[in-house]
Design a binder for these strands. Structure first.
Lengths: 219, 219
DNA sequence: ATATTGTAAATTGGATCCAATATATGCATA
DNA sequence: TATGCATATATTGGATCCAATTTACAATAT
């Protein structure tokens, strides 16, 4: 007998499913800043009761993706330019450290996968896919860092500003620039130059920050 | 008529109260690693139903303070030495950055309050109070950083290892050493030496890390 | 005695119901 | 018309109930 074992106790609850769906909708910008989340409406959409929906919403609140007021409900969290800037600074700090650790123990497999992501990013013509590919590229480079706690925090930070990152990529030369900078980072990783990769990553993130903030102010 | 206005819509729900109580119990070590959280039992303790308890538990899970398994329930999250080490590294990285920003804009008020905390820490004979005073001291020094996002993350990291920090303070010369290092940090802040304060803070945290890990291994 | 199976008790997940609060609507009045 | 008030409706928070699953335990077989 050969069976692929599945740990049932880790299967997703209804709340998990609702949470993931809402999270995706928020970070992809399908649910806009300040848009209210009606428990009843969501429950109907998912053919369930309000209980799992409420659970999903409290999860989202802990993640900072929605804000709730007692008896008024939850709205998609809006985020001030100041906080966007701070999160980019934070990312530069942490992701720099993470990639440095990762380069020193990066597997051949990860390098290959990263290059694949990079190529997919370059050749994709679907602006909606850019955000995913961009994120996947970075994540692949971080994977081998051996710093799961750092990675969790980085992922949460990325969730908070994903919408803006996507917007930034669609700016005039956002994607071309990302392409070039990604390539430089990738080459540093492949050459085993950890400190260089860290430096390029930091600059990559801070560059995206200024570019995005310029754009936000001009509007 | 003079009234202190209170925003009713921000008053705590039952779930918030339960959450805070459980959080406190976990970080102070009253609830031990791996100890199960029975919804029914907790609900009875707080004279409420299981619904707010469940909400509190999902909040704790998002904070990483408990882990849950479907249909099996929640237990206080245990934390491997590796992860303790990683969190200390993370703290050194972020808190160094935070205190550097804070020194450059620290108010007279905050400096005075920090010194008060330091003195209270020195003179307190209650080992249980040390943890609080230690944390309050650091937090006061970080307050003026203008980096609320960073502060939130740091607070969460502290929650995760608070138990171990308390243990570390009670080690042979843990408190004496903390006292000396705190004093050095405080003086650097008062002298406006931001980079020095950052460096001392990083070393303070990494020192606590090695001291604690040594202790964990010896056991 | 040990292992295995079946059943009862305990526990969690989800649905439904009620209470508390907020929002919208209509009416009266200046 | 604009303002204030009262009521109706909508929405969230919490309690209770039922279903799904796990855990404890007794009975049975080897």
């Amino acid at each position: 007998m050969k069976l692929q074992p599945v740990d049932i106790s880790k299967t997703a609850s209804v709340a998990d499913i609702v949470f993931e769906a809402l999270r995706k909708a928020i970070i992809e910008g399908d649910l806009k800043d300040g848009e209210p989340l009606r428990q009843d409406e969501i429950a109907r959409l998912f053919n369930t009761s309000r209980i799992p929906v409420r659970e999903a919403i409290t999860m989202l609140e802990q993640q900072g993706l929605v804000t709730t007021q007692r008896y008024k409900g939850a709205v998609v969290a809006s985020i001030a330019p100041d906080e966007v800037a701070e999160i980019f600074d934070f990312r530069a700090l942490v992701e720099g450290t993470v990639i440095k650790a990762a380069v020193e123990r990066m597997s051949e497999e990860s390098r290959r996968k990263a290059r694949q992501c990079h190529e997919a990013f370059s050749s994709s013509t679907d602006p909606m896919a850019w955000g995913d590919l961009n994120r996947q590229f970075h994540y692949t480079l971080y994977q081998d860092s051996g710093l799961p706690y750092h990675l969790g925090i980085v992922n949460n930070a990325l969730d908070r500003i994903d919408r803006y990152l996507r917007a930034q990529l669609m700016l005039s030369n956002g994607r071309a620039r990302a392409h070039d900078e990604h390539l430089a980072i990738l080459e540093a990783c492949e050459a085993g130059k950890a400190e260089l990769a860290a430096d390029l990553t930091r600059r990559h993130i801070l560059g995206a920050k200024t570019s995005l903030l310029d754009h936000l102010k001009r509007k």
